[in-house]
Design a protein around this nucleic acid. Structure first.
Lengths: 150, 150
DNA sequence: ATTTTTGCAAATCATTTGCATATAT
DNA sequence: ATATATGCAAATGATTTGCAAAAAT
């Protein structure tokens, strides 16, 4: 989520209460790099001795997802992960090495989607695109590693 | 999977044994329309009194996925589902109403992917695209329903 | 013969739920 | 005040694992 302000407004607009636990979960998320699992947050909360229960974290994630403050990913491993995000429609590229995520615009996806719709006759109303690869800095690190080990 | 023959070869090529339980699971899959969950197959196996254990089904699904005889989907609901598929790279459109799936070619996705790669600097090596919508026959049924209820 | 697979039951893991209490409005 | 949200512990559900027996090579 980057920062916590959007949360305040989003909750308000949707008529949800701004509670201490929700703010705390939002802060944990804001401090995270890349994607994270519910279990990661549970561990964070425990290690920082915020007295936040497991259920509360799951409930907050569900709510945030609904409010589009967070997006749920399904990693190729099958794990469920989340990434913070604030904007409207977009997708993520996920680094398989460090877990970092980068947002990308809808680049041509719209076109692909409508093309598929026309071809199949489906009325397509949702799509999910997940791209996985190696981010620039991991590529650099890998290259350096090769040199060292050569 | 459509039919079971590809299984025989795929197992052989990869050096796995062609066992009765695996063949049975492949048959259950071939008889399925649209996507299905591991639990669906467990139920099928039980109701047909094939004496196949839960673990075996999970293990077969894992193996088949690895051999690309089956593809794992993550539905928006969060459920894990599978669809049979025999060909190389392709994607699925999933009907949110009846669960039917239709394969689609890579239509422009390659382009989108490389575009994203260029923009972000990621070396993209995998992508997953899932499209959800209403298939033609469900659209027709819905339209009929509207008329009836009007 | 030897190695892989199986079925079972138990273990594990993630996620959800019931409910009395605490908190935000 | 009152409706919503929380924490806990227990329940649920899905998937995995250990292991001795069975089947495939």
């Amino acid at each position: 989520m980057g920062s916590v302000e959007p949360l305040v407004e989003a909750l308000d607009v949707a008529g949800h209460r701004l509670t201490e636990p929700r703010r705390a979960v939002a802060e944990l998320i804001a401090q995270r790099q890349g994607h994270f699992t519910a279990a990661d947050l549970v561990a964070d909360a425990r290690s920082r001795r915020l007295g936040i229960g497991r259920a509360t974290i799951f409930r907050a994630l569900e709510l945030f997802t609904e409010l589009n403050l967070v997006e749920r990913l399904d990693l190729p491993s099958g794990d469920h992960a989340y990434v913070g995000c604030m904007r409207r429609h977009h997708h993520h590229v996920v680094c398989s090495s460090c877990g970092r995520t980068t947002e990308v615009e809808d680049h041509g996806m719209q076109t692909v989607v409508s093309e598929v719709g026309r071809q199949t006759g489906y009325r397509i109303d949702a799509h999910r695109v997940e791209l996985f690869g190696i981010c620039p800095s991991c590529q650099a690190r890998d290259a350096a590693g090769v040199q060292l080990s050569a």
